[in-house]
Amino acid sequence: MRVTFERSGGFAGLMLTTSLDTATLPPSEANQLRQFVQAANFFQLPTEMSSASQPDRFQYDIAIDDGKRHHAVRVGESSVPESLRPLIDWCMEKVRGG
């Protein structure tokens, strides 16, 4: 499974991005990533979940390729469903080097 994660916007307008692949992650992290994707029902989420434009808010773009399935989601900070929050938080931790 390959995950591309991007956070843009915010006060400073900085873009953070990372690509993760379960084939290169430690097994425990690869399993954790799969669990977050499954718990979020990622492949059933709508492709666009942005709210009305709000200055200084973040936008998240997540694309996942899992063999035969590919899905991309764009979600505004104020529209993130609770089921997706753990995946976003985990990806942000990886962007920051955690």
Rank of each mutant, 00 (worst) to 15 (best):
R2Y: 09
R2N: 12
V3H: 05
T4I: 13
T4F: 12
E6Q: 12
E6N: 04
E6W: 06
R7K: 15
G9L: 08
F11E: 08
A12F: 15
G13R: 06
M15G: 14
L20V: 12
D21P: 03
T22E: 11
A23T: 13
L25G: 03
P26A: 14
S28M: 13
E29Y: 11
E29R: 14
E29K: 15
A30I: 03
A30Y: 02
Q32P: 02
F36E: 03
F36L: 10
A40Q: 00
N41Y: 00
N41D: 05
F42M: 00
F43Y: 07
Q44W: 03
P46N: 06
T47H: 09
T47R: 08
E48K: 09
S50H: 11
A52W: 13
Q54S: 09
P55T: 15
D56Y: 10
D56S: 06
R57K: 14
F58L: 11
F58Y: 13
Q59S: 13
Y60M: 02
Y60Q: 01
D61T: 13
D61S: 13
I64D: 00
K68F: 12
K68Y: 12
K68S: 15
R69I: 03
H70R: 13
H70C: 08
H71V: 01
A72D: 05
V75I: 04
E77S: 05
S78G: 09
V80R: 00
P81V: 00
E82Y: 04
S83Y: 09
L84P: 00
R85A: 11
P86G: 02
P86R: 01
L87P: 02
L87V: 06
I88C: 04
I88V: 07
W90R: 02
M92N: 08
E93C: 14
E93V: 14
K94N: 07
K94F: 03
V95I: 09
R96C: 06
G97N: 02
G97M: 04
